[in-house]
């Protein structure tokens, strides 16, 4: 029998997160009293509640069968990578190069071979972005890298 590993793992993670939050808050933030409740009150109490809920999710899951669920690793890496590149490059490289690179990275994980459609898509999205955000909305973002 396959256990419901997803719920078990996530319940465990949530329980640990709850405990960590409560411990951190208890260590660094004042718990306060009823009259002047401190910044630690909510995180400590809710962290403990989260830990309890996490256990409630995890423990029963160990005793029941579950189905395995597909996790799309390549797509996750591609999309997250594209976002990171966008966030880290935007202020340095300007909108146009950043957008082009982001689209290329994002489309790399699409389940279709070929380079031509990717280049067409890159040019189309970059142009559309420029038209919408610089041309249309006039957002204060540099379109190109700052001059050196």
């Amino acid at each position: 029998m396959r256990r419901d590993l997803h719920d078990a793992a996530w319940g465990g993670v949530l329980a640990l997160v709850g405990l960590a939050v409560a411990a951190w808050a208890a260590a660094y933030y004042d718990f306060g009293g009823l009259r002047r409740m401190g910044p630690g009150f909510f995180p400590v109490v809710l962290g403990l509640i989260l830990a309890a809920l996490g256990l409630l999710v995890a423990v029963p899951a160990l005793g029941r069968p579950g189905m395995s669920r597909h996790f799309a690793w390549p797509e996750t890496v591609g999309v997250v990578g594209a976002l990171l590149v966008f966030g880290l490059l935007l202020n340095r490289a300007g909108l146009v190069p950043t957008t082009a690179l982001t689209v290329l990275i994002a489309s790399a994980v699409a389940p279709r071979r070929g380079i031509v459609w990717r280049l067409v898509l890159t040019i189309a999205v970059t142009a559309l972005t420029w038209v919408l955000f610089i041309g249309g909305l006039d957002m204060p973002i540099p379109a190109w890298p700052r001059s050196f």
Binding site: G87, L90, T102, V103, L121, I141
Partner: peptide
């Protein structure tokens, strides 16, 4: 969808940036 989602990613980035 493969034609849409790269644009969605760019728009989400700019939306959040805005």
């Amino acid at each position: 969808f493969r034609w849409l989602y790269p644009a969605i990613i760019v728009f989400v980035c700019l939306g959040v940036y805005s």
